[in-house]
């Protein structure tokens, strides 16, 4: 007797998690641009307006300053708002509400006024949308105390992380990668579409997961870079190289224990990151790795997006992105250096 597989895209899994939370708790609300009638430009709020009505699922004018500020106020007064910043690139006009108000509310009030809000936002490029619609900016948010930052690589984790984020008493930035959403016009990495249980469950914030165990080298990724790493690990297996792939799932707080456990075993590390190279997530992961005592077999290394704005032309953009073949090349060169 086969159990029917319930495959969902990340977009559907996010919508399902939000609906489940709204069902249980009338204080959960959704605000944002095109999240009502359209169901979200990236499909994150499908079916919510019909089910819960316009009082709880509200399309806002194009003013992130206003509606994200409003969400911080709602969270301070007992509501649990979920707001969508359509592209993370647009954070400039609402950052004061995010990092000076939301992130510090609990701290400034001695824990008396929590800020249970979820800021969900799309990240990533690769589809020719140029420099103001293609950035990742993981480290920009993860750098700031008081903010948690999560990003799923598959629909199972998307539902569980969203339910954790909504339940959290403090602000959680829920990032989702456009190329994993399951919206046809952005392409979809098939590995992101997995079985999602009907019932509610949580994926804990701050916990990474080994996506593929291995002995020879650790490949760390998050979101789409997990899929590049898995593809690379698959090709490398044919050459007798056994790579471990670690899916961070949460960017802040970073699961340093999981990074340490993996590199102590493999003693080799490549961090794959589609955000800018300098001062970024990849540097933080490498710092965590070198802070634990490991007798390295090769120097830890990062493979990230160069420090340039994202070009519009696919001919210019695509060679700059991390890829499975770049990871394979880097792994081979690290292992060759050891052999030499």
């Amino acid at each position: 007797m086969s159990v029917t597989k319930r495959r969902l895209t990340i977009a559907k899994a996010m919508s399902e998690a939000i609906a489940a939370a709204m069902d249980k708790d009338p204080s959960v609300l959704v605000l944002g641009e095109d999240i009502g009638r359209l169901g979200g430009v990236f499909g994150t709020t499908q079916g919510l307006l019909d089910r819960f009505g316009a009082d709880r699922v509200r399309d806002t004018p194009i003013s992130e300053t206003a509606f994200i500020g409003a969400a911080v106020g709602l969270a301070a007064s007992g509501m649990r708002p979920i707001v969508e910043l359509m592209f993370v690139d647009f954070f400039g006009v609402c950052m004061d509400a995010i990092y000076n108000l939301a992130a510090k509310q609990s701290y400034f009030s001695g824990g008396r006024v929590p800020c249970p809000m979820v800021l969900m936002t799309s990240v990533g490029g690769g589809y020719g949308d140029a420099g103001q619609h293609s950035q990742c900016l993981y480290a920009t948010f993860a750098h700031l105390p008081g903010l948690k930052v999560v990003m799923p690589s598959n629909s199972h984790d998307a539902k569980g992380l969203m339910l954790s984020a909504i339940a959290d008493p403090n602000p959680v930035v829920f990032m989702f990668h456009k190329a994993l959403q399951g919206m046809g016009w952005l392409g979809t990495v098939p590995g992101s579409i997995v079985h999602v249980p009907v019932e509610d469950y949580t994926v804990p914030i701050g916990r990474a997961q080994v996506a593929k165990p291995g002995q020879d080298i650790t490949l760390v990724g998050v979101g789409i870079t997990v899929h590049y790493a898995l593809e690379a690990a698959n090709s490398l297996a044919a050459e007798g190289i056994d790579a471990e792939v670690l899916d961070l799932r949460t960017i802040a707080p970073l699961d340093r224990d999981a990074i340490a456990a993996s590199v102590r075993k493999t003693r080799r590390l490549i961090v794959v990151d589609d955000d800018y190279t300098s001062f970024g997530l990849s540097a933080e992961v490498m710092a965590s790795a070198v802070e634990c005592s490991v007798d390295w077999l090769s120097t830890p290394s990062r493979l990230a997006y160069p420090d340039v704005p994202v070009p519009f032309s696919p001919a210019l953009e695509h060679p700059l992105l991390p890829s499975a073949s770049k990871i394979c090349e880097r792994v081979r060169s690290l292992l060759r250096r050891r052999a030499a």
Partner: peptide, 9 residues
Amino acid sequence: GVIATWLCK
């Protein structure tokens, strides 16, 4: 319309 994504192989 367009097939956005296949959920099965």
